[in-house]
Design a protein around this nucleic acid. Structure first.
Length: 419
RNA sequence: CCCACCGCUGAUUGU
């Protein structure tokens, strides 16, 4: 079992999921898999967004008489949280406790982080209290998650108070803690508060890392100060800190949005010269750059080049290509890409669906848009308000008011609140 | 032999 488990883990690490699952099926035939085996696979499925398959696996695990443990539940909880489906997460949590499986500090960290990502700090904080009520002590993850929750919700002064409260409880803030706070300030445009937080962390003897600086670089880019960002980037490099893909990409995106592909590509070359391995995110930035320029030929060429270099495509890239094709009026190609991504096991997300539905409406394909909205149900994905708005708007513009109102009612039936 | 926290990429209705 140990050997099978570690081989499966290796396969997954290399994106060889077909091989991993083949081996798993073979092992099932001889009754080898244990809880670890299932957990490893569920973990991977949840991380790549294939939650439905993870749930199926969980069911199979029980059928096979292998008892799920905390980790099994934690993995599935993580999957629901990652999809932003906190209702299902809460349900599952209830189920696990009913079955007598004790949640641990990780369970709560996962749930809290799920609420944090939905900017629902209060729910996250409720979880913290429940956890403490059960006598489970906080760890660094817990503390950082709470601070991050306030920062993500834009409640910066409370974040500061909370930090001090935690420090009294013995929490020693680390680089990540300060990164969360800096990020919060930058997102609300409070650059000077961000800088003074940065100085505070230096004073406490905590070394900033590349993430700290990427927060600033990205902030400058998003406020149209690409030049300042670029300067900072070189300064960071001069300090001897290794720039990574995300740092470069923050600026590349800035250039791409300015439709300045020359400088974007120049930076891309620099990143290659620095010995960094480009990932799907950088390629996606560049591909989007071509989409902004309405140059789908170049976009597809770059996509091809990426695949040739052995970088696997992902949901975001498919979304960019689908969106670009629709904006160019090419519905056929867009639908082909959509089928292709499904066939290859990529799970479209709400961004993909908004792009598809919006683009189909723009091109007058309302029926296709409507069909796709309801395909989401079969995939266990929950359409959000934005997607409904997009489609309702499409019907409105075509003068199909009845359809629009029907969709509106359907949305209400699903418990979505119109905005 | 398995699980959780920070930065970069994709969509956008109405005002």
């Amino acid at each position: 079992v140990f050997i099978v488990n570690s081989v499966i883990r290796c396969f997954l690490k290399n994106n060889q999921w077909k091989e991993a699952f083949d081996l798993f099926e073979e092992a099932v035939g001889s009754g080898v898999p244990n809880a670890f085996t299932y957990n490893i696979l569920m973990h991977w499925l949840c991380h790549v967004g294939r939650l439905k398959e993870a749930c199926n696996l969980f069911a199979r695990m029980e059928d096979a008489g292998v008892k799920p443990n905390v980790v099994s539940y934690n993995n599935l909880l993580f999957g629901h949280c990652k999809q932003g489906d906190m209702d299902s997460a809460a349900n599952l949590y209830g189920q696990m406790t009913e079955r007598g499986i004790k949640p641990n500090v990780i369970t709560f960290a996962i749930l809290m982080d799920g609420y944090v990502k939905k900017k629902d700090f209060d729910q996250a904080y409720d979880m913290l209290n429940i956890m403490r009520g059960l006598g489970i002590a906080c760890n660094e993850y817990t503390f950082n998650t709470v601070i991050n929750g306030l920062c993500k919700a834009g409640r910066m002064s409370e974040a500061n108070d909370m930090l001090h409260k935690f420090m009294e409880e013995g929490f020693v803030p680390n680089c990540m803690t300060y990164n969360c706070i800096i990020n919060g300030f930058i997102r609300e445009g409070a650059m000077s508060s961000a800088i003074s937080t940065y100085q505070q962390m230096l004073k406490r003897g905590i070394s900033p890392n590349i993430i700290t600086y990427t927060n600033f670089i990205d902030g400058f880019c998003k406020s149209n100060c690409t030049d300042v960002a670029l300067k900072l980037m070189y300064e960071v490099r001069r300090k001897g800190l290794q720039l990574d893909i995300a740092a470069y990409n923050a600026i590349i995106v800035g250039f791409c949005k300015d439709k300045n592909m020359d400088d974007a590509l120049k930076l891309f070359d620099e990143l290659l010269e620095a010995g960094l391995e480009p990932n799907a995110a950088v390629f996606n930035s560049l591909i989007s750059g071509y989409v902004y320029l309405s140059n789908m030929t170049a976009a597809f060429e770059l996509h091809k080049k990426m695949l040739e270099e052995g970088i696997p495509c992902d949901t975001a890239i498919y979304t960019t290509l689908i969106d670009g094709s629709l904006k160019a009026g090419n519905v056929t190609v867009a639908l082909e890409l959509y089928s292709e991504m499904l066939a290859k096991g990529h799970v479209p997300d709400d961004v993909t669906f908004t792009a598809l539905i919006h683009g189909l409406c723009e091109n007058g394909h309302l029926e296709d848009a409507y069909k796709i909205l309801h395909e989401m149900d079969r995939m266990d994905l929950h359409p959000n308000v934005l997607i409904y708005n997009t489609l309702i708007n499409g019907y409105f513009r075509e003068g199909k008011l009845q359809e629009a109102f029907r969709l509106h009612d359907e949305m209400l039936d699903r418990g979505l609140v119109p905005d």
